[in-house]
Write a protein that binds this DNA or RNA. Structure first.
Length: 196
DNA sequence: GCAATGATTTACT
DNA sequence: GTAAATCATTGCC
């Protein structure tokens, strides 16, 4: 079952980030469907400095974050990696959830080809840049709506116990000062596909 | 118009 | 452990 857009339009991005753990991200790229269960997320809000839309300042890059919840936000980082986010909240309230790692569940052979036949399957999707490459995500998928048929998220019926969810500070945003310490990163405890 | 810089990954010493 | 790869976006001139 696809998650309804009402799921993404709620006002608490941190809660949504936590609830996305265990859901399954699907893409349909080049006629091939691939999917991975979300095992690591981070929340971003205009209220804190780690966010591209800090201060609710709109630019060409982050414009899609001002759309209503349920859109995708894909952008290029370090000149070579695509990062995948899910926009949340209502129109003109820029908040998003970064998907940092997934566990492959469908189309694994295609992911291996896209990633270049790795020796270790645990490296397939265990990082924000890796999973986008494995799932065929690039900026052509920026601004898509998750109710469409190119990229979407399903509830596979898996119930995640709160005991299995770990909170920690977000990664790679030292420039955000005090906001870098917010415990807005969520991981599935003990999962083999978490980023390092 | 131009220089600085990442929500990273990979390879090499 | 350190560094290179590599480029769109950003902010300042």
């Amino acid at each position: 079952m696809k998650l309804p857009d009402s799921f993404y339009r709620r006002t608490n991005v941190v809660k949504i980030a936590r609830e996305l753990l265990g859901k399954v991200l699907f893409t349909n790229v080049g006629g091939i469907i691939t999917a991975g269960m979300i095992v690591e997320t981070e929340a971003y809000s205009w209220r804190e400095k780690g966010c591209h839309a800090y201060g609710a300042k709109k630019t060409n890059r982050n414009a899609v974050m001002f759309e209503r919840g349920g859109h995708t936000y894909v952008y290029l980082c370090y000149g070579m990696h695509h990062l995948f986010n899910i926009v949340t909240n209502e129109t003109n309230i820029p908040e998003a959830v970064l998907i940092r790692a997934v566990q492959p569940v469908h189309g694994i052979e295609e992911m291996m080809i896209r990633r270049g036949n790795l020796k270790n399957e645990f490296h397939l999707t265990s990082g924000p840049g890796k999973l986008t490459k494995a799932l065929g995500i690039d900026r052509k998928l920026n601004g898509k709506f998750l109710m469409g048929d190119e990229v979407w998220v399903e509830d596979a019926g898996r119930r995640i116990s709160s005991r299995d969810i770990l909170e920690s500070p977000r990664i790679g945003i030292d420039y955000a000062g005090d906001d870098a310490r917010l415990p807005w990163r969520f991981t599935l405890n003990g999962n083999d596909w978490l980023s390092k």
